[in-house]
Amino acid sequence: MALKATVFRAQVQISDMDRHYYESHTLTLARHPSETDERMMVRLLAFALHADPQLTFTKGLSADDEPDLWQRSLGGEIERWIEVGQPDERRLRKASGRAREVTVITYAGRAADLWWQHNSAALERLRNLRIIDLSSDESQALSRLAERSMDLQCTIDGGEVWIGNGRETVGLIPRLRQV
């Protein structure tokens, strides 16, 4: 018998002073059985960093031809393709041809550094690819906020991010590896 995804619900109030975006979003996140709280919360962070009414979570780990999040135009074109983790270079090359903008958010510390060393030469050629890195400490702190039902506040200002649940606030400084 196959294991089912665990459903998490999040009410996220986003105050993005860098983009002048101030909205509240009700999100449903399906955590694949092989996904950790850390990865799921990085997906939620990815949503907050790129929040838009058209941005949606996809099947993610359950689908080979979809990113973790994407934003489609009203005409169906892929405007934004967002991957979390350390995707294969060929996958990113293909995504770069399909989407106007591709973003990868890495978070595994030393493993992310090794992934970048191995793939940077090929990835630097992709002009519509942006890579954001979180430190291992930041992503692990973010995972402590994971609950089946979450009420989160996210503030983004000057490239820094604060996410809190009323009891604990996590500060993050995402680093741009490739713009």
Score class of each variant (00 low, 15 high):
37 D>V: 00
38 E>Y: 03
39 R>G: 05
40 M>G: 12
40 M>K: 05
41 M>E: 04
41 M>L: 13
42 V>W: 11
42 V>N: 10
43 R>H: 07
43 R>G: 03
43 R>A: 03
45 L>P: 13
46 A>W: 11
47 F>Q: 00
48 A>L: 08
48 A>C: 15
51 A>L: 11
52 D>N: 15
52 D>T: 14
52 D>K: 02
52 D>S: 15
53 P>G: 07
53 P>R: 04
54 Q>S: 13
54 Q>H: 12
54 Q>R: 15
55 L>R: 03
55 L>D: 01
56 T>H: 11
58 T>F: 06
58 T>I: 09
58 T>C: 10
58 T>M: 09
58 T>K: 10
59 K>A: 06
59 K>C: 02
60 G>Q: 08
62 S>L: 12
62 S>N: 11
62 S>I: 01
64 D>E: 13
64 D>N: 08
65 D>E: 09
65 D>S: 12
66 E>D: 06
66 E>G: 01
67 P>Y: 00
67 P>T: 04
67 P>H: 04
68 D>E: 15
68 D>Q: 12
68 D>F: 00
70 W>V: 07
70 W>I: 04
72 R>I: 02
72 R>Q: 06
72 R>K: 12
73 S>K: 02
74 L>W: 02
74 L>D: 09
77 E>L: 11
77 E>N: 10
78 I>G: 03
78 I>N: 01
79 E>I: 15
79 E>M: 14
80 R>Q: 14
84 V>P: 06
84 V>F: 11
85 G>L: 08
85 G>Q: 14
86 Q>E: 15
86 Q>S: 02
87 P>G: 03
87 P>N: 05
88 D>Q: 13
89 E>Q: 09
89 E>L: 04
89 E>M: 04
90 R>P: 02
90 R>D: 15
91 R>T: 10
91 R>E: 14
92 L>D: 11
92 L>K: 12
92 L>E: 08
92 L>C: 07
93 R>Q: 14
93 R>P: 00
94 K>H: 12
94 K>R: 15
95 A>P: 03
96 S>N: 13
97 G>K: 07
100 R>N: 10
101 E>A: 14
